[in-house]
């Protein structure tokens, strides 16, 4: 019976730790610079505040992703990967990047506010 208590406590600690981490990740980002990178290489640096509405096509291995910027927000408009998780993620809002695993594409806010304050 004692062992069970220990296990419940460990599980609770993992859960609480993960929840705190989640909250940290989901904190809205203050920076407005978005980085689009593929296969570890940075493709675009985009300042969402000054960027006009447009779509960006990114190709990988014959497959295509279309990223849309609209009203200072960014999301994956379409992708021909099998799972479409990147589209379901919706608009980029917090530290949770938009990821297209099959096409190795990552859209995320740039780390730190160095860029923001310098401007």
């Amino acid at each position: 019976m004692r062992a069970r208590t220990v296990y419940i406590v460990i599980t609770a600690v993992i859960l609480i730790g993960a929840a705190v981490w989640c909250a940290y990740v989901m904190k809205p980002k203050s920076g407005k610079t978005v980085v689009i990178s593929q296969d570890g290489k940075v493709l675009y640096h985009i300042d969402l505040d000054s960027e006009k509405d447009k779509t960006i096509d990114v190709e990988y291995d014959g497959r295509k992703n279309i990223i849309e910027i609209k009203g200072g927000r960014i999301h994956m408009k379409s992708a021909d990967c099998p799972d479409h998780i990147c589209i379901d993620t919706g608009w980029l809002e917090d530290g949770k990047p938009i990821v297209c695993l099959p096409n190795r594409l990552v859209i995320e806010y740039e780390d730190g506010d160095i860029d923001g304050t310098a401007r």
């Binding site: 730790g17 981490w21 989640c22 990178s37 695993l101 990552v106």
Partner: peptide, 22 residues
């Protein structure tokens, strides 16, 4: 995922996965 994407930013997904994993 970090190896495939050559980017550490996906670690932001780990806490969500851990909760669902629990």
């Amino acid at each position: 995922a970090m190896l495939v994407l050559k980017s550490t930013s996906v670690i932001a997904y780990l806490p969500f996965l851990m909760i669902s994993g629990c």
